[in-house]
Write a protein that binds this DNA or RNA. Structure first.
Lengths: 142, 142
DNA sequence: ATGCCTGCAAATATTTTGCAACTGC
DNA sequence: GCAGTTGCAAAATATTTGCAGGCAT
């Protein structure tokens, strides 16, 4: 397991022409295991447990690097700071307009999405990111 | 014209129980005329032309107020700071992953969107916000 | 050996807050 | 007049950058 993960991370780095450092490896592993949409500060707090000397600047630099490389994605901010998520499966978000909670929803459950790969102005489509804005079950009761 | 706009702004304020101040009125009018997805700083710069003494803090406070009231909407941030847009017509965004340019696209041209008003977990849908991520025509040539 | 990376500290940028004076209702 | 609003300045947050030393390749 660990061997595989390490290996694929090495490959990822090679593909993107970046060096495999201890900090990067831990950062990557930690982020893979984090659910939701962590902010850099939250990621930093987690990584610090394993690499106490790591700097917040390093976390920022590498998150940007990962986002540029397509390893992770930047996510819409109905919060207040940079958020990321992993590239895993294709899913979208339900955002509660009362409590601001963000919940994932799969492409199937969402039930929409056509597949044009080109839009009017010649825009080449890579993917769709859908935010469903509404009221979550919990807030409806209040 | 001006009378009408002023009137509807007054109504908007009454509906939301907020006072009609000169600053707010100008802020509202300026934002209505701004295209794209202005940041608070950009809005501030514009409003300052008409109300030189206005403070950035006031701009922030009122943008939040407008967003809470549903006059404007907060927009996903593939930029770096708070962005808003007006509630006018139903449209979505095409975001170029190269140059980060955001272009509006109408609901019709987009060609997707189903109309379920309730999703699996009991989530009550208010609206969909779709970002199409891809490459704009300009960047495809490079 | 070389150039990419790191940590640190300082610089920037962004957003919020406290408060006294002022204004709409 | 009272409550809500403004401007200012300072604080709090968030993010970026320069640089000297260290590590991956």
């Amino acid at each position: 397991m660990l061997v595989n993960e390490a290996k694929s991370f090495r490959e990822l780095c090679r593909e993107n022409g970046i060096a495999v450092t201890h900090q990067r490896q831990v950062l990557y592993e930690v982020m893979k295991t984090m659910h939701g949409h962590p902010s850099p500060e939250e990621v930093y707090a987690q990584v610090k447990k394993r690499v106490p000397a790591i700097s917040l600047a390093t976390v920022y630099k590498n998150i940007h690097l990962f986002v540029e490389s397509g390893v992770f994605r930047e996510v819409s901010m109905h919060h207040g700071s940079l958020r990321v998520e992993m590239n895993d499966e294709s899913h979208h978000h339900m955002v509660c307009s009362k409590c601001k909670a963000i919940t994932d929803i799969g492409e199937k459950e969402l039930g929409l999405v056509s597949k044009q790969d080109r839009l009017p102005s010649g825009f080449l489509v890579e993917r769709y990111a859908v935010d469903v804005i509404g009221i979550c079950a919990k807030c409806q009761q209040a």
